[in-house]
Simulated scan of single mutants.
Amino acid sequence: MSIEVNGATYETDENGYLVNLEDWNEDIAVKLAEGEEIDLTEEHWSLVRFLRNYYDEYQIAPAVKVLTKAIAAEQGIDKKEASEFLYGLFPKGPALQACKVAGLPKPTGCV
């Protein structure tokens, strides 16, 4: 499978995740988000940047529990509010959809 962005073709797996993480850029993120029926706002971009930084540091995409805890701490809200916020941005699953848009591998474990 693949997607086309700005005249270039990028390989994706059967679930639509980028195969080569180095291919990712913001134009690709927009294309992947369109496939998820998401219009990226600054809140989406903030989460995408968080995920990419987390991946750079730990070489793994965070599970939704880790993501929720980090967002709660960052925004000074409780975990329930953070979860609602994340699902508001990525309704089909914040870890799954957000990692796809961020060009990261599909998260494993507790998603």
Score class of each variant (00 low, 15 high):
residue 47 L to E: 08
residue 25 N to K: 04
residue 37 E to C: 10
residue 76 G to K: 14
residue 79 K to D: 14
residue 58 Y to M: 11
residue 50 F to R: 04
residue 45 W to I: 13
residue 80 K to S: 14
residue 110 C to Y: 12
residue 48 V to W: 05
residue 86 L to H: 03
residue 75 Q to P: 00
residue 95 A to V: 02
residue 52 R to V: 08
residue 27 D to H: 05
residue 5 V to T: 12
residue 72 A to E: 04
residue 80 K to R: 14
residue 52 R to Q: 13
residue 22 E to M: 02
residue 72 A to P: 00
residue 53 N to K: 11
residue 85 F to N: 07
residue 4 E to W: 09
residue 76 G to N: 14
residue 16 G to W: 05
residue 29 A to G: 15
residue 12 T to K: 10
residue 71 I to Y: 12
residue 61 A to C: 11
residue 11 E to Q: 13
residue 86 L to V: 05
residue 56 D to L: 04
residue 10 Y to M: 06
residue 30 V to I: 15
residue 18 L to K: 06
residue 41 T to Y: 10
residue 71 I to D: 01
residue 20 N to H: 12
residue 58 Y to C: 06
residue 3 I to M: 13
residue 65 K to W: 14
residue 5 V to R: 05
residue 66 V to W: 09
residue 82 A to D: 09
residue 46 S to E: 12
residue 11 E to F: 05
residue 106 K to S: 11
residue 96 L to K: 08
residue 31 K to C: 12
residue 73 A to H: 07
residue 18 L to Y: 08
residue 47 L to R: 02
residue 38 I to R: 06
residue 26 E to C: 05
residue 9 T to V: 14
residue 51 L to M: 09
residue 57 E to A: 01
residue 63 A to M: 09
residue 106 K to R: 15
residue 73 A to S: 13
residue 12 T to M: 12
residue 82 A to N: 11
residue 102 A to N: 06
residue 97 Q to W: 03
residue 48 V to D: 00
residue 94 P to Q: 00
residue 22 E to T: 03
residue 80 K to C: 03
residue 83 S to T: 13
residue 3 I to Q: 11
residue 11 E to I: 04
residue 56 D to A: 08
residue 81 E to A: 15
residue 98 A to L: 01
residue 98 A to K: 02
residue 37 E to F: 13
residue 73 A to K: 13
residue 27 D to T: 01
residue 86 L to F: 07
residue 75 Q to C: 02
residue 81 E to G: 09
residue 21 L to Q: 10
residue 76 G to F: 11
residue 110 C to L: 15
residue 24 W to V: 07
residue 31 K to Q: 12
residue 4 E to P: 03
residue 103 G to N: 06
residue 95 A to R: 00
residue 109 G to F: 08
residue 67 L to T: 05
residue 89 L to H: 01
residue 106 K to Y: 06
residue 33 A to W: 08
residue 2 S to Y: 14
residue 111 V to Y: 08
residue 96 L to S: 00
residue 62 P to M: 03
residue 32 L to W: 06
residue 81 E to N: 10
residue 26 E to N: 06
residue 83 S to I: 02
residue 89 L to F: 05
residue 69 K to D: 15
residue 43 E to H: 14
residue 55 Y to I: 04
residue 46 S to D: 12
residue 15 N to H: 10
residue 93 G to T: 06
residue 34 E to A: 14
residue 80 K to F: 11
residue 59 Q to T: 13
residue 66 V to Y: 09
residue 100 K to H: 11
residue 55 Y to R: 01
residue 85 F to T: 02
residue 51 L to D: 00
residue 65 K to C: 14
residue 77 I to L: 10
residue 76 G to M: 13
residue 50 F to S: 01
residue 12 T to A: 10
residue 107 P to H: 01
